[in-house]
Amino acid sequence: MCGIVGLFLKKDDLRPKLGDMLTDMLITMTDRGPDSAGIAIYGDEAAGSTKITVQSDTPDIAFAGLQAALNEALGTTASVKTVDTHAVIVLPVEKQDAAVSFLEGKGLRIMGVGSSMEIYKEVGLPKDVAARFGLRDMGGSHGIGHTRMATESAVTTMGAHPFSTADDQCLVHNGSLSNHNQMRRKLAKKGVFTKSENDTEVGAAYISSRIAEGASLGQALEGTIDDLDGFFTFVTGTKNGFGVVRDPIACKPAVMAETEDYVAFASEYRAFADLPGIEAAKVWEPEPATVYFWER
């Protein structure tokens, strides 16, 4: 049970303000999700490089000397930027798999991997989480944020949204899936494993596995309508765009706004109140069992 916000910029001039706008939207959704907060932000892409966002509960120890150790082990020139409990590691794309193994071996939690996506999430009030990571100063083309009121899985960093189960893909969710245990077992048989007990991660893994099998994002989102049971509003991010789908009953709130400059998503209109030009925006609610998708 949660609050969702999303912002997709159609024009580049707002890029430096993305983090600032998303942060206000996120904080407005605190009542819907006071347990934890997270954000996936699609920022600058460096050609031939990949970004790995990792988390540690003991960042002082875990991130000290990480850059040197990584470079020595992989024979590369990775950069490590520490942001509170998270660190973003940038390195050549061909070193990605080896780096993930190395980092996991060090006990670091992988938040997400991709050419432009960075994921930051922690337990705590959205305003505190946003401040710790300096979300306001982050720029980018689009981003998705989430505030969580945990239902059945634990209030932990790994239980916070967004969930990323493939490169540059992330998912946030409001609702409660009722067949996630069964789906988790089905996915595991295919070799797709989840890291948490969270129902949303299963939704994310389902979409990633469908895409890995050759489906388009649109088809994978369509698939959630038939294959996932329960109540859900999903917002999903990819390198170039973002998509929205609601279950056929569509009880959980969802509202969208579009201007010439941006497309915005939120659980409540309140989150839009400060967006530029919102008075004249087209504001509507996504239909049930209908996939919406924007791409650059």
Binding site: M1, C2, M149, G175
Partner: peptide, 8 residues
């Protein structure tokens, strides 16, 4: 529907 709406 759900505790987040119930709060409101």
């Amino acid at each position: 529907t759900g505790p987040d709406d119930l709060e409101i």
